[in-house]
């Protein structure tokens, strides 16, 4: 019975680490504009960071061929030809880290043309690191209890 109880507690702890709501970080939403240059096969800047609730405007500037910018998780996108900048505006209402991906085939490495949008802190990464540590802890604890049995 005891190992099962410990296992149950550890699983419970894992669920808490993964899903427990965090105290919301308050910051008044502001409008932010980013000038993002797209070239084969990168965005410059490669990462943009905003706070949850911000109104984000991305001005996409293609500097060689036609590129796009698709925000993973948000499902919004914009395309720009060189010389014809395009803007994308959306409210960053989901927090976390999201990939920006080119959605106009722009050459061989196009599928790997990625950038990053950070909305608030990357809490899922921290939760994952904690889960990894908890996983190790569980292995030690369970190994000890099974040895004692």
């Amino acid at each position: 019975m005891r190992p099962y109880a410990i296992l149950f507690l550890l699983v419970l702890a894992g669920l808490v680490v993964a899903f427990a709501p965090l105290p919301a970080h308050f910051s008044a939403p502001v409008a932010r504009t980013f000038h993002v240059e797209a070239s084969q096969f990168a965005y410059q800047p490669g990462e943009i960071s905003v706070n949850p609730g911000d109104k984000v405007t991305i001005e996409l500037v293609s500097t060689d061929v036609v590129h796009g910018l698709y925000v993973d998780g948000y499902g919004v996108s914009v395309k720009a030809d060189p010389g014809q900048n395009a803007t994308l505006t959306f409210v960053a209402d989901k927090s976390g880290s999201f990939r920006l991906r080119c959605n106009v085939t722009c050459g061989a490495m196009h599928p790997f043309m990625v950038g990053k949008l950070n909305v608030g802190a990357n809490t899922w990464l921290y939760r994952s690191l904690a889960l990894a540590s908890l996983g190790i802890f569980s292995v030690f604890v369970l190994a000890r209890t099974t040895k004692m049995e």
Binding site: S39, Q40, F41, A42, Y43, Q44, G46, E47, R99, L100, A108, M109, F112, M113, V114, G115, K116
Partner: peptide, 15 residues
């Protein structure tokens, strides 16, 4: 790092 990261120059180098 190379394929999923946001460092574009290393992608070009790898290619």
């Amino acid at each position: 790092y190379v394929l999923m990261g946001s460092n574009g120059s290393v992608k070009l180098v790898a290619y």
